[in-house]
Amino acid sequence: MISWLRELAMIAVGMAFITGALAIVLKDRRWMLLMLAGEYIALTWLVGLALPIQVAAAKLVGGMMACAILAMSVVRVGYESRLSEREGLPSGFAFRIIGVLLVSASMWGLVERGGMFLPQAVHPAAALGSGLLLGLGLLHLGISEEPFRVGIGLLSAMAGFEIVYVVVEPSLAVLAFMTAIHIGISIVVSYLIVGASTDEVEGLS
C-alpha cells in the first residue's frame, strides 16, 4: 500500500463529508453527480487503506460507470432536481443544512464511541468516512422520494458500507458483486427517471 494514502487519509474523510453533504444540499443534478463522483474517489481512497490500490481502483471504475449511467439520464430529462414530491414534507435549504450537520455529528459520535460494532482492523479514518457516507446517504433517502436523489442516497449509503465491509470480506467475488450492484442501481434509477419523463411528455401531448 502507498504510505501517503494512509498518512493523508483524513483528506478522504473530509472529501466524503463535503461531497456527501453537498449532494444533499445542492439542487442542480450536474453538481450532484460531480459530488457522487467525489464520493467514489473518497471511497476508493479509504478502501485502499485495506486493499491493494489496484484492487480498490475497481471501485472507482465501477463508481464512474454508475455516474456515467446516471449522467446519460440526466442529460435527457434536465438538470433541475425536485426535492419533495409531497406537499408539507420539509426539504428547504436550512432544513437540509441542519440535517446534514446533525447526522454528521451523530455519525462522528457513534464511530468515536464504537457504536457501529466495527472490527479493530478498520482504520479510524475509514470508519469515520464510512459512517459519514452511510449516515448522509440515509438522510438523503429520508428527505426525498425523487428517483434521482433516491439513487444518489442509495449509492452513498452503499459506498459507506463497503468501506468497512471490504476489511472483513476482502474477496474479489464480493468486490465484483458490490460493484455490479452499484451499476445495477444506477441502471434501474436511470430507467425510472427516463421512463417518468417519457410518461410526462406523453401525458402532455
Partner: peptide, 25 residues
C-alpha cells in the same frame, strides 16, 4: 408502463438495499 406510479417500486429498492447491508453486517 406506468412510470409516474413508481413510489412502491422505489420503496422496494430502498428497503431491499438496506436489508442487504444489514444482513451482510
Amino acid at each position: 408502463g406506468r412510470f409516474q406510479a413508481r413510489k412502491g417500486a422505489l420503496r422496494l429498492l430502498i428497503l431491499y438495499t438496506l436489508g442487504m447491508i444489514v444482513l451482510l453486517w
